Amino acid sequence: GMDVRRLKVNELREELQRRGLDTRGLKAELAERLQAALSGPSSG
């Protein structure tokens, strides 16, 4: 899988935006949010 901790802030935001998620917050928050999205149930 993707290691969200290795991504830069702008990369985290890009991935979040692609999934329609909130791109605001600290890098740690963005990484946590993206990780949750990646490990969560895949819809679609």
Rank of each mutant, 00 (worst) to 15 (best):
M2H: 07
M2R: 08
M2A: 06
D3G: 06
D3R: 11
D3I: 10
D3A: 09
V4F: 08
V4P: 08
V4D: 01
R5Q: 08
R5E: 07
R5I: 06
R5F: 11
R6M: 10
R6Y: 08
R6W: 07
R6D: 06
R6T: 10
L7G: 01
L7Y: 06
L7W: 10
L7V: 02
L7H: 02
L7F: 06
K8M: 07
K8T: 15
K8F: 04
K8G: 13
K8A: 08
K8I: 03
V9D: 04
V9L: 15
V9G: 03
N10D: 10
N10L: 08
N10F: 10
N10E: 14
E11A: 07
L12E: 01
L12H: 00
L12D: 00
L12M: 05
L12S: 00
R13P: 00
R13L: 06
E14K: 15
E14T: 12
E14I: 13
E15I: 07
E15Y: 07
E15K: 04
L16H: 01
L16M: 02
Q17F: 14
Q17E: 10
Q17T: 07
R18W: 04
R18N: 06
R18F: 04
R19L: 14
G20W: 03
D22H: 06
D22R: 07
D22A: 07
D22M: 05
T23H: 08
R24L: 07
R24H: 14
R24P: 03
R24Q: 11
G25M: 02
L26Y: 09
K27V: 08
K27N: 04
A28G: 08
E29W: 07
L30P: 00
L30I: 03
L30H: 01
L30Y: 01
L30R: 00
A31P: 00
A31I: 15
E32N: 10
E32T: 10
E32D: 10
R33H: 01
R33D: 01
R33I: 02
R33K: 03
L34H: 00
L34Y: 03
Q35F: 13
Q35T: 09
Q35V: 09
A36Y: 08
A36N: 10
A37V: 08
A37M: 05
A37D: 04
G40L: 12
G40A: 14
P41N: 13
P41Y: 13
P41R: 07
P41M: 14
S42T: 12
S42E: 11
S43D: 12
S43G: 12
S43F: 12
S43E: 12
G44E: 11
